[in-house]
Design a protein around this nucleic acid. Structure first.
Lengths: 151, 151
DNA sequence: ATGACCGCTTGTATATTGCAACCAGTTGCA
DNA sequence: TGCAACTGGTTGCAATATACAAGCGGTCAT
């Protein structure tokens, strides 16, 4: 996918995460603490294994996730959010807030989104910092924001 | 679309806007002031007419857009954002901010997103208020909307 | 050694998308 | 009146993506 439909940042983002599964995978990594293939396969929405495999590969290639070996099991892979992935949290939050407000969400299913709305950006940053600790290689913090206004 | 994969607000939202075109249509309505089919067809990304037609119908049915007659032309339809659609602006903003930061955006193509980031939620609310004036039926504000007083 | 578990892959059927051509009605202009 | 340009879409077809179920070689604890 090296040719883009346009260079609009919204379009470029949608070319990666513009489907019905990618953000749910990020959600499960960020909020449900799922790190293994078989865990992610148990998503509430019932993703198929081939779709999950393809999306994980895509998200890794895009730089949103990273894949590493689990030292306790030679066949297990650990999927982690990268800094780029962690920074999708405000996107997830706004989508959740919008969905809770306008779509047929039950009280329980909307509770996490309600929390995100009440806490606001301050809470999001706090959550991002925690995700950094559990997902990023030791030593890397969210401080290193490398801008890339390339052309 | 009456059966949902889950009641998670993020999932419910993605069932509607989780594709590569829907949010671009909302973007063009919100930022490029495109209101007619043929205008939207000229999107920078080159959407096909059948896809555009299907998405417009879907977004109208979902309550994100509304469709009305253009008094100046019997065949023209005017597409407008509803309050629900206007409230997608923070979602668009966060996606744009994320895309500008992490994807190969040029300085020009990233300028609107940069503005949205710099202005922050205060700017978004201001933009939403302006969209309300041009897209919502007269009298309806961003607060709870009742039916128009009289015709 | 054996059965559960690991991240996938492989069919196969169906749904979605992309592309180009086309349509009937409307409008402005001559 | 005639006609070209324009209106919001449809239609047919090929390519691609998705869903579902089954299976695969290897690993691990017992």
């Amino acid at each position: 996918m090296s040719s883009h439909r346009s260079l609009c940042p919204i379009n470029l983002a949608l070319e990666i995460i513009g489907d019905r599964w990618s953000l749910l995978i990020v959600r499960d990594l960020a909020f449900a603490d799922k790190r293994h293939f078989r865990e992610l396969l148990q998503s509430e929405e019932g993703i198929s294994s081939n779709i999950l495999a393809e999306r994980l590969a895509r998200l890794v290639e895009a730089g949103i996730l990273s894949k590493s070996d689990d030292p306790t099991h030679k066949q297990k892979a650990i999927y982690s959010l990268t800094q780029m992935g962690i920074e999708l949290l405000p996107v997830l939050a706004q989508i959740g807030i919008w969905g809770r407000k306008h779509l047929p969400v039950t009280k329980e299913s909307g509770a996490p989104a309600a929390k995100l709305e009440k806490g606001g950006p301050a809470l999001w940053k706090q959550l991002q910092a925690e995700l950094g600790k559990t997902h990023l290689p030791a030593g890397e913090t969210k401080a290193q924001s490398a801008r890339r206004p390339a052309g």
